[in-house]
Simulated assay, not measured.
Amino acid sequence: METNRRITRSGVLLRVLILAAFTVTITAQKPAPEVFTLTVPNGPILTRLNASVTLPCELSPIFNVEPLEVRWYRSENSNRPALLYKDHKIQEAPVDPRYRGRVSLTGGLERGNVSLTLERVTVEDRGEYVCHVSNERWYEKANVYLSMNVTGSAPVLSVASGGGGQVNVTCSSEGWSPQPKLTWRNKEETEIKNEQVLFTSDSQGLLSVSSWLLYPPSDSDWLSCTISLSEEEKRESRVLPHKPGAWKEAFIVTLVLSLLLLSALSTVVCILLKHRDQMKREQSKSGTENSLEKQPVKEGKNLQDWHQVKGFKENITMDENTAHGTIRVTQDGKTAQYIKEKETMKSSDQRHPHVLANQSFRSEQHYWEVKVRDETVDKAVGDCG
């Protein structure tokens, strides 16, 4: 009895499984409807720069879309789609090269979902897209708008003269999408109502915003200008609304004082440099006088007054090889003595009596004195420098 019950249960379970399999087969082989519609969002799809975004598009009724053609393109360029699915695969041509490698169908074609996923979104990707699905007898299309939040530059604040004792404060920024909100606040964070706001668009469709207001000048009550897309996406700058004239006067006074100080410092430096040069000259003259005392050398017809030259500083010696034939230099090179001309003196040595030192001067200014002494009197010949 128990065995018969088990057989009966097994038979029932088997019939249920067969029926379910048959039902699935019939459903899968159900032909695609000749007429269908597309379902897309009513409002724009919002994304951020460099993010990934999905543009939804589904068929109704739900059926397998793999045998159909799916085309996503910009509304202004249907001949160069962002993505083309045809013959059971994604085609590489003709497609817009700007989207190559960045687009895919991620919804599940077997479930009637032909949603487009776009990677690494750029500013140029903003705008209207068309979801287009077609078979041999029917096609349908729907539009999806892609919007993007782009945070612009930090506000630039400037202060200019205004009327009635007030100043004109200006706030400007650029590179926003979509249109941002601009808010003025004082130091107490109280919002200042102002309707003077202007928006302009650049070649990429990004917005520039500017605003201005008249405000009493102050050295402590700062103003803030905030431009925002949301609480998380905003920029703020602050300024003290000084009178432009006060800043100008302060700058001029500071500049004049700086120039006067620079002139005074230059004068002091020049005086010190002149004093230093004078001290060097005096020290050089004094050192030379103390270091050199030379016996007189008399030229021409007064050769008889030559007798002895001596008194050089210890580090200066005479070179015997350069001495005139009438000059004799001692072994230590410190003394030179006049002697009578020799009859055998070479005719080529008829120059004035002279002798050179072993040392020489290469630069700067030097001073020395020459004295000539005969046996009775000292004669000052002069000085050289």
Rank of each mutant, 00 (worst) to 15 (best):
residue 206 L to Q: 00
residue 196 Q to M: 09
residue 171 C to D: 08
residue 195 E to R: 07
residue 148 M to N: 06
residue 167 V to G: 02
residue 179 Q to K: 15
residue 198 L to K: 13
residue 174 E to N: 13
residue 183 T to F: 01
residue 196 Q to D: 14
residue 204 Q to W: 01
residue 172 S to E: 12
residue 190 T to M: 15
residue 185 R to P: 03
residue 156 V to F: 12
residue 192 I to E: 09
residue 153 S to R: 11
residue 185 R to M: 07
residue 154 A to R: 13
residue 179 Q to Y: 06
residue 171 C to F: 03
residue 177 S to K: 04
residue 183 T to G: 05
residue 207 L to A: 03
residue 205 G to F: 05
residue 189 E to M: 13
residue 182 L to C: 01
residue 161 S to W: 09
residue 153 S to F: 09
residue 194 N to S: 15
residue 152 G to M: 00
residue 179 Q to D: 07
residue 175 G to T: 03
residue 160 A to K: 11
residue 191 E to S: 15
residue 158 S to W: 00
residue 174 E to L: 10
residue 209 V to D: 03
residue 182 L to H: 08
residue 188 E to A: 15
residue 199 F to Y: 15
residue 209 V to L: 09
residue 191 E to K: 13
residue 164 G to V: 02
residue 194 N to P: 08
residue 162 G to F: 04
residue 149 N to M: 07
residue 206 L to T: 01
residue 176 W to F: 02
residue 207 L to K: 07
residue 182 L to I: 12
residue 198 L to S: 14
residue 198 L to Q: 13
residue 194 N to F: 05
residue 172 S to P: 00
residue 194 N to I: 02
residue 202 D to Y: 02
residue 155 P to T: 07
residue 193 K to M: 12
residue 189 E to A: 15
residue 152 G to W: 00
residue 197 V to S: 01
residue 203 S to D: 14
residue 202 D to C: 03
residue 155 P to M: 07
residue 153 S to P: 01
residue 165 G to I: 00
residue 181 K to P: 00
residue 209 V to F: 07
residue 196 Q to L: 11
residue 172 S to A: 15
residue 160 A to H: 10
residue 171 C to H: 06
residue 158 S to F: 00
residue 195 E to Q: 11
residue 201 S to A: 14
residue 181 K to W: 08
residue 189 E to K: 14
residue 199 F to S: 08
residue 191 E to C: 08
residue 174 E to W: 11
residue 163 G to Q: 10
residue 160 A to M: 09
residue 208 S to T: 10
residue 203 S to R: 12
residue 166 Q to A: 09
residue 203 S to T: 10
residue 153 S to E: 14
residue 173 S to M: 06
residue 189 E to I: 08
residue 184 W to I: 00
residue 178 P to T: 01
residue 192 I to A: 11
residue 190 T to L: 13
residue 208 S to L: 01
residue 204 Q to G: 11
residue 171 C to Y: 04
residue 168 N to W: 02
residue 180 P to V: 05
residue 202 D to K: 01
residue 184 W to R: 06
residue 162 G to C: 07
residue 165 G to E: 04
residue 173 S to W: 06
residue 149 N to L: 06
residue 208 S to A: 15
residue 188 E to M: 13
residue 184 W to S: 01
residue 181 K to E: 09
residue 201 S to T: 15
residue 204 Q to A: 14
residue 185 R to N: 13
residue 171 C to Q: 07
residue 193 K to P: 13
residue 196 Q to R: 12
residue 160 A to V: 09
residue 184 W to G: 02
residue 180 P to I: 06
residue 197 V to W: 10
residue 155 P to Q: 08
residue 192 I to G: 13
residue 190 T to Y: 13
residue 195 E to F: 08
residue 190 T to G: 14
residue 208 S to K: 03
residue 177 S to Q: 08
residue 167 V to K: 05
residue 189 E to G: 11
residue 152 G to L: 02
residue 176 W to R: 01
residue 157 L to D: 02
residue 175 G to W: 00
residue 202 D to R: 00
residue 181 K to S: 13
residue 175 G to F: 04
residue 175 G to Q: 06
residue 204 Q to I: 02
residue 192 I to Y: 05
residue 203 S to N: 12
residue 151 T to H: 01
residue 192 I to Q: 08
residue 168 N to D: 08
residue 174 E to T: 14
residue 150 V to D: 05
residue 163 G to M: 07
residue 161 S to M: 09
residue 200 T to Y: 07
residue 170 T to V: 12
